[in-house]
Design a protein around this nucleic acid. Structure first.
Lengths: 230, 230
DNA sequence: TGTGTTTATTGAACACGTTCAATAAAACTC
DNA sequence: GAGTTTTATTGAACGTGTTCAATAAACACA
């Protein structure tokens, strides 16, 4: 499609797709992912049922789209959150906390992630090809806090540590999605304890005593990475 | 229903339910869980579509049923597998390997576990109330190898270690379900490396140096257990 | 402005898991 | 063995996500 002279005209299709996405998000938040019907969503958006499938290949794709948008909007908030955190443990904690805070109003939307949670075959999985771009931006943040964190990292671990921390983050997010305590307070405590544990383990991993175990763990990481490539 | 005098008559309903289950398993193995239709399954079993729902509350319940049966049939095989393994690492490895071997012909059936994988709300989840009985039998095995393994365990960790090892096992099983390498060879390597890592960590956890980290980890375990109770 | 082409939109139809009122078969009671 | 109750079985119907042929609207170009 050629761009029009006046770009507020050129975005008419985009406007429709956004109206559908907005309607979907409202209903997902209100009634949850499963309860909200494609018929409800399109009705609220004022289009026919089939219209949604002109813009989004599936119901889950609506969540994928939201996830991508939210992730990119989130970047400045992460930047400032990291500014106020000294040391690797604090940075790790605050990085993840910033994400959860940003996602909080749409927790009901993201609960769709629990559907087919880890199977890379499904587009919405954090391990899928469709979410690869987001994943890479994400991992870059962990790479940065590893460098800025002021904790000395064994040379052989440096390359893989960011991805390992990202993996850890996904665990926290899944916990948060399942956490039904008021305001997900339990996840807050989990984050503190687990960040302390993770950084404690990283610190220990430098000790000469730990070398054999570290090498085994590194082989393990290599193995998991291979499968992810499939 | 009163038991009949001749028990080969009393099992007529049971026979129908088994015919449905068998048809389901054949089709799940052949075409996968999603592909196999309830209409296909009931047709193969020679009953009407609705009949399946008289015996099983849902399609997933067919897998739950198989899972429960397979788990109980598996017990002797585990016993002998543990007999041939000396030391905690070997016992841990062989316990899990025995399960995977036993499950192997039905890997396609169990791939249904990836649907709604970790959400305890869904009956098929390893964390659901419906699978609690199986889970408890399972954890008892890990309790046993912890005792028989010949590795000294810190007193404060003893109570929770079996459940932690069970959790580790679930990770391996999920990896196995996703592992598309020939004969799931990668899972074999994962099992060796990860069992070594886990037992290595347990050994280290006894060191006086590790006490603070161990205490943090224990608090973490306590927290996760709380949520599981929800 | 008229015509051909691309982009958008429609709503009926499909396949699926599941439900349910109707009916048949079996078991029980006397 | 007739009548009654419980258990088993049926298949049409429902609501869901998704597909698709038909149509409308927007656009490109002469």
């Amino acid at each position: 499609m050629e761009l029009n002279t006046f770009n507020f005209m050129a975005t008419k299709a985009e406007e429709t797709s956004l109206r559908i996405l907005d309607a979907a998000l409202v209903l997902f938040r209100q009634e949850g992912f499963e309860q909200a019907t494609m018929r409800d969503i399109t009705k609220r958006a004022g289009v026919a049922t089939g219209a949604a499938y002109y813009y989004y290949p599936s119901k889950e794709a609506l969540v994928t789209d939201f996830y991508a948008r939210a992730s990119s909007e989130m970047q400045p908030a992460i930047e400032t959150a990291l500014g106020g955190a000294k040391g690797l443990e604090a940075k790790l904690r605050e990085l993840i906390r910033a994400k959860l805070t940003h996602f909080a109003p749409n927790r009901a939307v993201l609960r769709a992630l629990l559907r087919n949670g880890v199977d890379p075959k499904y587009p919405l999985s954090p391990f899928s090809a469709q979410t690869q771009a987001i994943r890479e931006v994400d991992i870059a943040w962990f790479a940065r806090i590893v460098v800025d964190g002021g904790v000395s990292i064994p040379a052989d671990l440096k390359a893989d540590l960011p991805a390992v921390l990202w993996f850890f983050q996904m665990g926290v997010i899944f916990f948060w999605l399942l956490d039904e305590s008021p305001e997900q307070a339990r996840t807050g405590r989990l984050l503190e304890l687990s960040a302390k544990s993770v950084v404690g383990l990283i610190r220990l991993s430098s000790l000469p005593l730990m070398r054999p175990l570290r090498r085994t763990a590194l082989q393990l990481i290599g193995l998991v990475k291979e499968v992810r490539a499939w």
